[in-house]
């Protein structure tokens, strides 16, 4: 993937929003980055020059990001994050292996913010097929901020993670109460194994008398079977309206005759789904912010 258009875009959104000395400093760094050591130091001190404010981006800016790199969504990116990403894109190197080696070293000495920045930058970096292990490593983190950087609003996992690592990412998001609707390309990579893990997890939570995110059923809908549909029946008995919505939406995504029948008994929910008033997005938003 050519990275020059990405760098140009990042510079264009960043430079007008940082102090003048920051502009000079960053341009100097990007033009003169010759040795690995210079890169490490610049990467660390970047925030001292750029500040850490969240960038103000227009709809047009966000659309352009999406066009440059499908799934790239810098809506919540901060000035230091954009500057550091520019530096990572400019790492001096001869071969893909040398690039990854430098990247590994900066990962291994990174602080909390820097780690999140690095993981969020993965979909923009050159040699994307070389970062699969790194992305899977990010999924293993215990630090919420870092996990979110790889799991949420990040197209890299959808595009490159093998199924097992992808499923880990989704399951861990459920387990750690992360908003599933913010996982890029979730519907596209639903699979039967994931649906089964989700159902098992629901049983575990129910057995323990614990709450369960309604978003979970998003993983199950297309894989409903005569054996597992009883879970949706049970969900429809829940005292919570949002669980009914999730049950109906899961049913609407199934071709199973039993699912059609069950949904037919919920005319109000069916109408709301057809009107676009109940989507996984609306369920996710209200579940997470309730």
């Amino acid at each position: 993937m050519p990275t020059a258009p990405i760098s140009e875009y990042l510079l264009r959104i960043l430079l007008p929003q940082i102090p003048a000395p920051g502009v000079t400093w960053l341009q100097n760094q990007l033009n003169n980055l010759k040795a690995e050591k210079e890169f490490y130091l610049a990467f660390s001190v970047a925030s001292r020059f750029t500040g850490k404010k969240k960038l103000n981006l227009t709809e047009a800016d966000l659309l352009e990001a999406e066009t440059l790199r499908p799934g790239f969504n810098p809506a919540s990116w901060t000035a230091d994050q954009v500057a550091r990403t520019l530096l990572v894109l400019a790492i001096p190197h001869e071969t893909p292996e040398a690039y990854v080696a430098t990247l590994n070293r900066v990962f291994s000495t990174a602080d909390l913010n820097e780690l999140a920045t690095l993981y969020a930058s993965l979909p923009l970096l050159p040699y994307p097929e070389h970062h699969v292990k790194r992305a899977a490593e990010g999924v293993r983190t215990t630090m919420t901020q870092v996990f979110d950087a790889i799991a949420l609003h990040n197209p890299y996992p959808h595009d490159y993670l093998p199924q097992e690592a992808w499923n880990q990412l989704v399951v861990k998001s459920v387990f750690n109460v992360r908003p599933l609707y913010q996982i890029y390309g979730l519907d596209n990579r639903r699979n039967e194994a994931l649906a089964q893990i989700a159902i098992d997890y629901a049983h575990e939570r129910w057995a323990a008398g614990r709450t369960l995110t309604p978003e979970l059923w998003r993983l199950v809908g297309p894989f409903l079977s005569p054996e597992n549909i009883k879970n949706i029946e049970k969900l429809l008995q829940s005292p919570e309206e949002i669980q009914h919505q999730a049950a109906a939406l899961a049913l609407s995504e199934s071709n199973l005759p039993e699912a059609r029948e069950l949904l037919a008994k919920q005319p109000n929910l069916t109408a709301a789904i057809q009107a676009g008033n109940i989507t996984w997005q609306t369920i996710g938003e209200s579940a997470y912010h309730a």
Binding site: S108, T109, A110, D111, L112, T142, M143, T144, Q145, V146
Partner: peptide, 14 residues
């Protein structure tokens, strides 16, 4: 030492 320092600025901060 490297892991200790990065632990201080990473996980412990978290």
């Amino acid at each position: 030492f490297k892991d200790y320092y990065s632990h201080l600025i990473g996980f412990e901060r978290f």
